[in-house]
Amino acid sequence: MKLRLILSFILLATCFTAFSQEKKNEAIVEKGLVKISVMYPYAEGKTFNMEYYETKHMPMVAQLLGSNLVKYSIEKGIASGIPNQPLPFMAVGTFYVKSLSDYQAAIAPKRDAIRADFANYTNVSPVILVSEVVK
């Protein structure tokens, strides 16, 4: 009985810790941050290497952003919002930064190297949207 109680407590504490960390990460995306969405359109015959993107490309760009970077995320497209319609994007990489000018200053000198790395994971030209988080 004691062992069951201890195991239940450990499970509860683990769940609480995971939930708290998830809530903490959600709170990071706040009003006023700049969001850079790099979207890779789906098209017949186009390819995307998610493993390379996740383990090499995005960490490389994130490192360039330094302390301006609040958070980044990687999404894999799985369906269109409209049934029986083609997937609009194969993948989306998103950076949340504090300052657009600092983002641009960090990226500008490395722009060619970043673009050259595209060939390592895709044959698609991305669509980039820069926006401000309003809520």
Rank of each mutant, 00 (worst) to 15 (best):
G66N: 06
A106L: 08
P83A: 10
G45I: 06
Y96E: 06
A91N: 00
F95C: 07
M90R: 01
G32I: 06
I114M: 07
A91D: 01
T55P: 04
I74W: 07
Y103A: 00
A108E: 09
S73I: 00
V134N: 14
S131H: 02
Y96T: 03
L33P: 00
Y52I: 06
F9R: 15
Q63G: 11
C15S: 14
D102C: 09
M1D: 15
V127P: 13
A13F: 12
V70H: 10
N84I: 09
A105P: 02
R111H: 12
G66H: 03
F89D: 01
R4P: 14
Y40I: 02
E44K: 12
A106F: 09
K46L: 07
M50E: 05
I6K: 11
E75G: 05
E44N: 11
M1V: 13
V130K: 10
K46I: 05
I114R: 03
D102M: 07
V29P: 07
F9Y: 14
K31Y: 00
S125G: 12
Y72H: 06
G81D: 08
E51C: 07
T47S: 13
K24D: 13
E30F: 14
L100I: 03
L129T: 06
F95I: 04
R111D: 14
A13M: 12
V34P: 01
F19V: 11
G93A: 01
V38S: 01
A116K: 07
K23C: 15
T122P: 00
K135H: 13
M1P: 11
V29Y: 05
S73T: 02
L64I: 10
P109D: 10
A108Q: 09
P126V: 01
Q21I: 14
G45N: 06
M90V: 07
E22D: 15
F89H: 04
A106W: 03
E54N: 11
Q104D: 12
K31R: 11
L7S: 11
F16S: 15
P109C: 13
F16Q: 13
L7I: 14
G66W: 02
F48R: 04
P59D: 04
T55Q: 06
S80D: 06
A105E: 09
T55W: 08
D112W: 08
A105C: 08
L100H: 03
L5G: 15
L11S: 09
Y72C: 05
N49R: 04
V97Q: 00
N49I: 03
F19N: 11
S20E: 10
A113N: 08
L5F: 15
E22W: 15
Q85P: 12
H57K: 03
